[in-house]
Design a protein around this nucleic acid. Sequence first.
DNA 1: GCAAATTAATGATTTATTCAAG
DNA 2: CTTGAATAAATCATTAATTTGC
Lengths: 234, 234
Amino acid sequence: MSPAGSTRWCPTPQQLMMLDEMYRSGIRTPNATQIQQITSQLSLYGKIEGKNVFYWFQNHKARDRQKLRKKLTRQLQHQQQLYHHHQLLHYLDSPAASPAFRHLPYYNSTSPNLFPQTGIHDEAAKQVMNYAWNFDIPERVDKNKGMMRTYGCDWLMMVDVGSPSSSSSSSSPCYPMISRPPLKTLELFPLTASNLKEECNGNDNINSTDFSISLSSLSCNITGTAAKITLSIP
Amino acid sequence: MSPAGSTRWCPTPQQLMMLDEMYRSGIRTPNATQIQQITSQLSLYGKIEGKNVFYWFQNHKARDRQKLRKKLTRQLQHQQQLYHHHQLLHYLDSPAASPAFRHLPYYNSTSPNLFPQTGIHDEAAKQVMNYAWNFDIPERVDKNKGMMRTYGCDWLMMVDVGSPSSSSSSSSPCYPMISRPPLKTLELFPLTASNLKEECNGNDNINSTDFSISLSSLSCNITGTAAKITLSIP
DNA sequence: GCAAATTAATGATTTATTCAAG
DNA sequence: CTTGAATAAATCATTAATTTGC
């Protein structure tokens, strides 16, 4: 059921574990770049698209919330403790930072940032819902599938820079967390990050840091067939 | 404020009128193709992007609904008329067909379908939320803007096939509703339309008609400049 | 044991709500 | 105050677990 004619993504156990670990490590709403990286990595363990990653985090976060809300409601009803029932929801997005979760095994995971971004945007972009659905990984790409998709206002373009012949028969050990992804992502017009929100931490207003990466003269010559739009970059 | 440094779309009066007319003529959730056509047309009257069109319909529909809901609530509270308060919401998406709106001036507009699509999907695709954010119109395109965006699972690619030099100083009469759009759109992978819904009419279950357009070997050779995916950024 | 029938999880969409520019 | 834009909540739909009758 999982392969072929299936209509919806069916995550492999490994993919699931990795996603879970990322979630536990604090990732909630990965930005476009992060989604690309995650997708690239997870593609080593099965077919996956950017949108799957996006939806997974969306759903996981939402269901975490409602689970907690439900639990909270019950507690309140049963114990009639009237203290502190307001602020709690604000911590839902960064449970790792919340004392309320310290007792859970995984929140104490000392695993560092799984995606050591260029480090510049990381903070500012945390809450921005900008995504790019991108190609499947070249080698696994279904003939007619690859295409670019974005959500929000952050636009990405994925470029295959001659991905090596790493049909790599998984000599990879357990979750090689960081590894040069099979695809290079190219951020085009990251744009100003308007409407940043702060749900997690204190409500310090982050004043919309602009984090554009300017590309000089990317001569786009699309000779692609289906999957590609491989903008061959010189 | 409207030009240059503005961060959000500022519709011109003409654009607004046209959108309104389309809305009144029954368009609620235009599909990707329709959005392209609309965008192309409206671009004659000012800068506009596909997403603007998309959002406009989204918001207009939503606010129409809530306005009506509010009105309805008041009526019910004030008049205590208990009749017919259930079915009403079902008509909100096709108010033109609802007797409740016949008294409004514009719903009687006899304007025909503004976008005489190929006619095949029109019905089935009515409720599918597939969109593509596309380029600005070539001539007005901001240097760094052009890019492809999609929402949902319907993917489009817009290609400028040598848009003419119609810098046309608006010799255009009143809302030339149908005219060959300045851009040609190229649908890539329309895909199967699962989960079609019927909101407007009776709830006959439309058994998910599959309307994929299979393109064999679309040798996409985009050498375009203009609207282009010109990623060339100085 | 083993399918058909139910129920629970969860991937994917759509609608409602909120934010903020003007 | 209006409304374009963005996000979160609700909902739909499909797949997997689980139960049930044989």
